[in-house]
């Protein structure tokens, strides 16, 4: 039966008996010498990605992180034909796994997102009023809107940069998310030692409080280090 891989952990680390993964399936540990793989049995030969399944995949690894295990996460969508195929694939990836395991030892991924708050900027009295219906006024409105969006995006980038500077001492590695999906305007992921998680949240929270009303900052984590240690097993 195909197995879906959530991540690789140190040997002997077991998920809670009540742990549930994709579509509510039980999560079990497949012991592989010094390591173990957390997997679920999947009846399909191909797995369709849905937001719900993404959350479930992530939730399994968050539970492991919460239990203070070191986790090398698998990106969503890595299916293996059966246990033997997965074991063989892990064996082939042993070197990469060793490196990834060393990277995540005692560390987690934190991230922050900068997005538009939905608060409209103050009305520009010079801007054309909605009542105007001429083509020129319509184009002016479009131009003003594009201009405002550009200003917001630039402000988000500056805020992300200044936040990153403040986090410098706490961060082991950084990934800048290129072209983040809307509604996010800027995003950074960081590899952080567990003992620095609370300080990370505090720094980002302070930055969030000082942001202009049109922007807001959301901090996420601690989670699995997808951005820094995800290994392609296969």
């Amino acid at each position: 039966m195909p197995v879906h891989l959530y991540g690789v952990l140190e040997g002997g680390v077991l998920p809670a008996a009540s742990a549930r993964g994709l579509d509510g399936r039980p999560v079990r540990a497949l012991s592989l010498g010094a390591r173990c793989a957390w997997v679920s049995d999947i009846s399909e030969s191909a797995l369709e990605a849905t937001p719900q399944r993404l959350r479930e995949h992530d939730a399994v690894l968050r539970e492991a992180i919460s239990a203070e295990y070191s986790v090398v996460p698998s990106l969503f969508g890595q299916l293996h034909a059966d246990e033997a195929a997965l074991a063989a694939a892990l064996q082939r990836s042993a070197e990469s796994l060793d490196e990834a395991m060393a990277r995540v030892e005692g560390r987690v991924e934190m991230s922050f997102l900068v997005a538009a708050s939905g608060v409209a900027p103050e009305e520009n009295s010079a801007a054309p009023r909605e009542s105007g219906s001429s083509g020129r006024e319509h184009l002016l409105r479009v131009r003003n809107r594009i201009h405002a969006e550009r200003i917001l995006r630039d402000s988000a980038a500056e805020l992300a940069q200044s936040t990153t500077r403040l986090l410098n001492e706490l961060v082991v590695a950084e990934r800048v998310v290129e072209s983040p999906a809307p509604p996010v305007l800027a995003a950074r992921a960081h590899l952080v030692a567990r003992e620095n998680v609370a300080r990370y949240v505090r720094v980002v929270s302070l930055q969030a409080a000082s942001a202009i009303p049109e922007l807001r900052v959301v901090v996420r984590g601690p989670g699995a280090a997808y951005s820094f240690a995800a290994v392609r097993i296969g």
């Binding site: 969503f76 890595q78 999906a181 509604p183």
Partner: peptide
């Protein structure tokens, strides 16, 4: 209370290149 933000974060990090390289996942629109 902004679910799209969380989802955006997951999409940016959890799927990433695995989606295309593995060829095992079909992007679904919910």
């Amino acid at each position: 209370g902004d679910e799209p933000l969380i989802l955006s974060d997951l999409l940016n990090r959890v799927l990433d290149k695995g989606v295309v390289i593995s060829g095992e996942v079909t992007i679904a629109v919910a």
